[in-house]
Design a protein around this nucleic acid. Structure first.
Length: 460
RNA sequence: GUGGUUGUAGCUCAGUUGGUUAGAGCAUUAGAUUGUGGUUCUAAGGGUCGGGGGUUCGAGCCCCCUCAUCCACCCCA
């Protein structure tokens, strides 16, 4: 067999043991939190029918979708009409379908909507689910951007209650509290406020252009935003209205008062203000990091219709957004189940990883694997060692036995390399006395104890 | 999709205006060491110099094509 240079596809990653342990720590923290908030687990297949996904993410989304090549007979059958159309020089409509009928999932939201539509009669509404799985995009990879990455989503469908918004904000607050993160910001806004702004400015038709432009405010500054608005077709007086809006500042209640004055003639805008002030002022729970009203928060996804949320990493790490979400109406309408409103959030695991790494917030426990290594010092030694090792494992202490009777030097080097803190030595002298030697490799202290004391020994 | 960067040992990288048999560190394996590691020393293995073509007496180095990679933009998570 020819030797090939091993490699992995562009934009994909291996996660080695040390990285996986830290990733698991993040994912477990998120999962536990989802569960205590009453969310239920869901997994959907890596691939979906092509029809389920196409047209849901815009033209660009269709381009970035990984399509799966049909196999065997199906592909062979496709060859005939393709050959015919080439010969007759006629365009082959829906040619993609002949090659591919499936695609890798592009996000978790559409498969979730599909699942809800398929199982509408069995599900207890409102349906609260969480889902943590990889998604794939045929994007050109670059820093912090991959072709395969994980999304961790929690959504509630079938309820218009704003209590859901509050609960989701509390999930963020709880997770980041548990991860020991401080200095992050929970920013909220409401799409209806932005709609109201477009109305007041006299350009409800350009809502998307307006949101795209003001979303860039903290990146490019007010002058450039105005420039962009002009390029997108807004007049001077219209831009002035938006500029006034962008200058809204102060505490949450001050901002709400200014908004009310500005948007008083827009029923949609006033509805948005009402919603957001309920969410911010309900006073049902204490936040360790109080949500901040940010009227310039827009978020690109234009299916949002109510509250929008974004979590910003602490300013000290310059990583930006580590999560986001919002409310969307009629998500399942495309699958024949209209009138179902949903609200959801998403955690950016890769970025949270980078934040915790930079701030050195991973606990020691998330980084350790095996705690105790039993040295292999010959047949007689392992006869005693093996049951003792199993005893530790039953107590939940990760333990292993060296695989062969190598030189002690080599076994110790293995322990060192694996960062195993304790070794257990059962050599001829220990066996003769019915004792066990335990060495702490960090402190280099060694003690010899009886079998009874070994049972009580705390490996910490 | 647009622009740029870099491809030399398992990894990180040297390699002069083109000149004999392409180097170093780390890692691996073995030994110095018959029950105590992280240090040190010695030795060994490991390369189609990303691939193809061209210029030349001669190419890791120059030219063309191609593939991969990373970075920035667009967009997004």
């Amino acid at each position: 067999m020819a030797k090939i240079k091993p490699s992995i596809p562009q934009g994909t990653r291996d996660f080695g043991p040390q990285v996986m342990r830290k990733r698991n720590y993040i994912m477990q923290t998120i999962r536990e939190t989802f569960q205590v908030f009453g969310f239920q687990p869901l997994e959907t297949p890596a691939m979906e029918q092509l029809d389920t996904l196409t047209g849901k993410y815009g033209d660009e989304g269709d381009q970035l979708m990984f399509k799966i090549l049909n196999n065997g007979e199906t592909l062979n059958k496709a060859a005939t009409p393709i050959a015919a159309s080439i010969q007759e020089n006629t365009p082959l409509t829906r040619s993609v379908r002949l090659f591919s009928e499936k695609a890798l999932r592009y996000d978790l939201t559409i498969p979730f909507a599909r699942f809800v539509a398929m199982n509408q009669n069995e599900l207890a509404m409102p349906f609260k689910r969480y889902q943590m799985q990889p998604v794939w995009r045929a994007d050109k990879p670059q820093r912090g951007r991959y072709r395969e990455f994980y999304q961790c989503d929690a959504d509630v469908v079938g309820s218009n209650s704003l209590l859901n918004e509050i609960e989701l904000l509390l999930i963020y607050d709880t997770v980041f509290e548990k991860l020991g993160l401080h200095g992050h910001e929970l920013r909220v806004n409401n799409r209806k406020i932005l709609s109201g702004l477009a109305e007041i400015a006299g350009r409800p038709d350009l809502l998307t252009d307006i949101t795209v432009a003001i979303d860039k405010l903290d990146k490019i500054g007010i002058a450039k935003v105005k420039e962009e608005l002009q390029q997108r077709g807004l007049g001077e007086t219209e831009i002035n209205v938006i500029e006034n809006f962008l200058h809204i500042d102060g505490s949450n209640s001050e901002k709400l008062a200014q908004l009310s004055a500005l948007l008083k003639n827009s029923p949609t805008g006033m509805k948005g203000i009402e919603e957001i002030s309920f969410v911010l002022n309900a006073g049902l729970a204490k936040f360790s990091s109080t949500p901040i009203l940010d009227v310039t928060l827009a978020r690109g996804l234009n299916y949002y219709t109510g509250m929008i949320i974004e979590v910003k990493a602490p300013a000290s790490v310059a990583i930006g957004s580590i999560g986001g979400g919002g409310r969307y109406d009629d998500l399942t309408g495309l699958f024949g189940l209209p009138g179902i409103s949903g609200v959801g959030i998403s955690f950016g695991v890769d970025r949270i990883y980078d934040v915790l790494e930079q701030l050195v917030l991973f606990p020691e426990a998330a980084q350790q694997s095996t705690k105790v290594l039993f040295l292999h010092l010959g047949e007689a030694s392992i006869q005693t060692a093996f049951p003792l090792m199993m005893q530790l494992r039953r107590k939940g202490i990760p333990a292993e036995l060296f695989h062969e009777a190598s030189k002690m030097d080599k076994q110790l080097k293995y322990a060192d390399k694996r960062s195993i803190p304790y070794i257990v030595i059962l050599g001829d002298s220990e066996l003769a006395e019915n004792k066990v030697s335990i060495k702490n490799l960090n402190t280099r202290e060694q003690q010899t104890v009886t079998l009874e004391d070994f049972e009580l020994f705390a490996f910490e």
